[in-house]
Design a protein around this nucleic acid. Structure first.
Lengths: 306, 306
DNA sequence: TGTTACCATAAGCTATAGCTTATGATATAT
DNA sequence: ATATATCATAAGCTATAGCTTATGGTAACA
């Protein structure tokens, strides 16, 4: 059995009018064209669908069944078109983002303001560490990723879009906290609370220490920023974190930024996508949006002086 | 937008395999044939549905939407085929019958035994009088009608299939009840309880009286047979009814058949359909069934002697 | 680096979908 | 009986759906 949408469309019109001529007018066709479509449909199901008694037309039982089917199917087609149109015009759709833990703070802001502009868009946001992000990209399980240091050799495309100053923080009562200037030698002696393996912040810090031939005493490692900051607040060690994560703590004065030689380390945030990936319309727009909005974001962050 | 079932079918296979070559094998097509169908579908919705990242294929958002749609639509098509097949093989379907009130008794029996053979067939049975039956046929609102005397000039096709003996009945204590023989002259003096205008039984009786130049004193008329018989039982008058309606009353001896000159009037039951009407498979089978079964029915009815 | 697997593209062919106009058949109305 | 409305059928045309084979491009992989 090999129906066509055309057959259904024409049959539906005939079934509704119970009159070939009028159906033909509605469809802007000649009457024989309509007769032929119906006839072909009848041949497909090899059973009559319409019978003519005297002057009037009646649907047979199978005819009624097919009328019902045709109505549904055609309606679903309309719905599909509508859905696709909405997706294309970004009235609907799904945006799959993933961000490094550290970026969480400001990305959420971006998403929130973006969501206001496109209210019917659903968004999924995966907050995880660097290596998981790469995996997500690899599996094509997200549209865009926001992360630190541009990864190479993974067929990725990345664009820097926001500065990410890493600073050293401590409990305000730490003996280094009030020093005007902290040297790297002094820093080397301290214990650090750091993120787990795979974290971008961690590897950036590590790189800094190696580049300056310093020991990097990592006393504890934990898998989220809040925990690290809490540990630093409790005096368990110093921490190296992005300024972007510090808003509350600075306001509450539970942490203090140390004025260490060579800090802040200015890294960048990158918007990363898979090379060759054709972004969905909504992802494309969001991509542009964040590049543009990042400027405004910068201004709203008070990068603290020392 | 002008999708085809073919496009959906092919796309569905590709979306499932995420591999053109394998989809082509499944569909017994060349690989380019599959590529082309997908490409055409993409052109129809003017948006990409599949993207190739490295070696792997992924569905875009719209692609997922269409996959979902295709699955549903194709499944519904299968369901439709199944339904039609069942209708054709009479596993399913609907039989629309209408019968004269008087025929109700034995038609119900026929339907009951028929329904056992075709359990998933639904049946509607309209029990009404002669003129309503003709109207139902006129409007093509039923498949078959069972009624008395063949109507003419209505573009109807009818086949006689069962004898319908009309007899005169009375309360057993009626003074005519015990007479060996009742003459028409004696009958003429009696009051009759009859069916309403439009009833076949009524007009048959009326015809009998006119043909024999007799007065026909119709004391009461009522619109159903049970009421008429009840009235006769109560001694309100004689009644002329089909033997087929008398089973219980004869057994209970609440009514008695009078041995009147010229009675029983042998009319026939007819199966009637609209001329040119192509019966549904199930109606066709039922039509044959009742013609065949009517013989058995005859034997089960004791036509009483006088 | 060459090989392999896989998809895209091109060229070319055939069957037929799909339409039209013209005409025939039939039931109803006048 | 004649006219009218309506559907069926026929003939004929065009565009193209849909397939094939051949070939080219490109990741991944050894």
């Amino acid at each position: 059995m090999n129906l066509t949408f055309r057959q259904l469309k024409v049959f539906e019109a005939v079934a509704r009018h119970l009159n070939y001529t009028n159906a033909a007018k509605e469809l802007h066709l000649s009457q024989p064209a309509v007769s032929m479509q119906v006839k072909q449909l009848e041949e497909q199901v090899s059973t009559p669908l319409i019978e003519k008694l005297g002057k009037k037309l009646y649907l047979t039982e199978v005819g009624l069944e097919i009328q019902d089917y045709a109505c549904n199917t055609l309606q679903q087609l309309v719905d599909l078109e509508e859905t696709i149109a909405q997706m294309k015009s970004m009235k609907r759709g799904h945006l799959k983002m993933a961000v490094a833990s550290t970026a969480n703070h400001f990305v959420i802001r971006l998403l929130a303001s973006f969501a206001k502009v496109y209210p019917r868009i659903s968004i999924s946001l995966d907050v995880t560490n660097r290596s998981s992000l790469l995996e997500l990209l690899e599996k094509n399980e997200c549209d865009l990723v926001i992360m630190g240091s541009p990864p190479e050799g993974h067929n990725l495309q990345s664009a820097p879009f926001l500065e990410n100053p890493l600073v050293v923080v401590s409990n305000p009562h730490h003996y280094l906290a009030d020093k005007k200037h902290v040297s790297l030698q002094e820093l080397e002696k301290e214990d650090f609370v750091v993120r787990e393996q795979g974290s971008g912040t961690r590897s950036a810090a590590k790189r800094f220490f190696t580049e300056h031939n310093l020991k990097f005493k990592t006393k504890m490692n934990m898998s989220n920023n809040r925990a690290i900051k809490h540990a630093a607040e409790e005096g368990l060690g110093l921490a190296i974190v992005s300024v972007h994560t510090l808003e509350i703590e600075l306001k509450a004065k539970t942490l203090k930024i140390l004025n260490v030689e060579g800090f802040p380390i200015f890294r960048n945030w990158y918007v990363v996508q898979r090379e060759g990936k054709r972004l969905s319309p909504i992802a494309k727009v969001f991509n542009e949006y964040i590049l543009q909005e990042s400027d405004n974001m910068m201004q709203n962050f008070d990068i603290p002086h020392f």
